[in-house]
Design a protein around this nucleic acid. Sequence first.
DNA 1: CGGCATCCTTAGGGATACTG
DNA 2: CAGTATCCCTAAGGATGCCG
Lengths: 167, 167
Amino acid sequence: MSETSTIRLSGPMAPRDAWTAERCPMAAAFGLVRNRSTLLILREALYGAERFGDFASRTGLSEPVAAARLKEMVADGLLAQDEYREPGQRARPRYRLTEKGSELAPVLLALKDWADRWIYDDESPIELRHVDCGAPVRVEIRCAEGHEIERANELELLPGPGARRRG
Amino acid sequence: MSETSTIRLSGPMAPRDAWTAERCPMAAAFGLVRNRSTLLILREALYGAERFGDFASRTGLSEPVAAARLKEMVADGLLAQDEYREPGQRARPRYRLTEKGSELAPVLLALKDWADRWIYDDESPIELRHVDCGAPVRVEIRCAEGHEIERANELELLPGPGARRRG
DNA sequence: CGGCATCCTTAGGGATACTG
DNA sequence: CAGTATCCCTAAGGATGCCG
C-alpha cells in the first residue's frame, strides 16, 4: 500500500494519448448526470418516486429546479413521462426510469460504497440487501475470467474498438 | 422488462423515510466529486498523472481551475502533495492519489460502463483489461453470497447501522 | 515550470409568486 | 397538484497576464 495505485498505460497507450481525453466515456457519462440535482432525482426515481411533487420534496430541490431537471432527463432518455389514472382519480403526470436511466444504478451504488467507507466510517445510514437472500450488496470490479480487481494497478488501459471512429 | 425497475422499500423504509434524503451516501460522495473538473483530474490521476502541467493540459482545464481543484482535492484527502526530485533535476511538486482517492475508481468505471453501452453503443474508445489474464473488466453488483444483481428491483433498501446517529 | 490575480460569462439553484 | 415566471445569488470555468 506504499505505492500509489494507478492504471497501467502500456503498449499503444504509453506515452498517454491525447484522445483518451477527447473521447472519454467517464466524462461523457458525467455529462448526463452533470449536477447534484440530477443525481438526487435519479436516486428518488430508484427509490420509486414517480410524481413531480415527490421528486421536489424528497430531494429538497426547489420546484423550478426539479421541473427543469425532469424535463432534461426525459429529453436525455433517463426518464419516461406518461400519464396514469388511479381508479376514481384524475390523470396525473408520471416519471419513470427508463432502462437507460436505471442502469445508472451502479454509479450511485459505487458512490454509496465509497461514502460508506470514507465518510461514514463503515456505519452507513442505509443498507442495500439482495431481496432473494438478504445478503448485503456491494460494487465489485471483476474481469470476464471472474477475478476480482482490488486496485487500479491491476488494470491496463488500451484503445477500444471505438478508438478510431469519429463522432 | 416491461415493468420499471426500482429498489424495494420494505418494512421500516415504507413509506419512505425523510432521513434517506438528509443522510444520503450517494449525495455525500457526489459532494466531494462535485463537478466535471474534479472528475477529469481524478481520471488523469488514475492514468498516472502527477504534475500540475499534465493535469491542466491532459484535462483541457484552464490553469486557474486545475490549481483550484488540485488544492481542494488535497484538502479533501483525495490527493497527496509532495515534492520529488529526479536525478539531476530541480524538485517539483507532485500530486498522487491517496487510497481514499483511488477508491473512487469504481465510480469512474461505472460511468465508463454506462457510457460504453448507452453513448458509444458498445464500441468504447477505451478498454480496461485485467493485467494478469488480459480479460476485459466490468463493474458488477453482487451480494455477499456471490449472487450477481442485474436489476434494481432485486435490491431492498433498509436503515443502516448509522441510521440513528447524528452528525 | 507551477502557479496566482483578475475579469468575464454561463450554469446551478433557492425564494417567491402565480396559473391551469 | 403540477408546474411556470421572475429575480437574485453563488459556483464553475475560460482567457489573459504576471510572477517566483
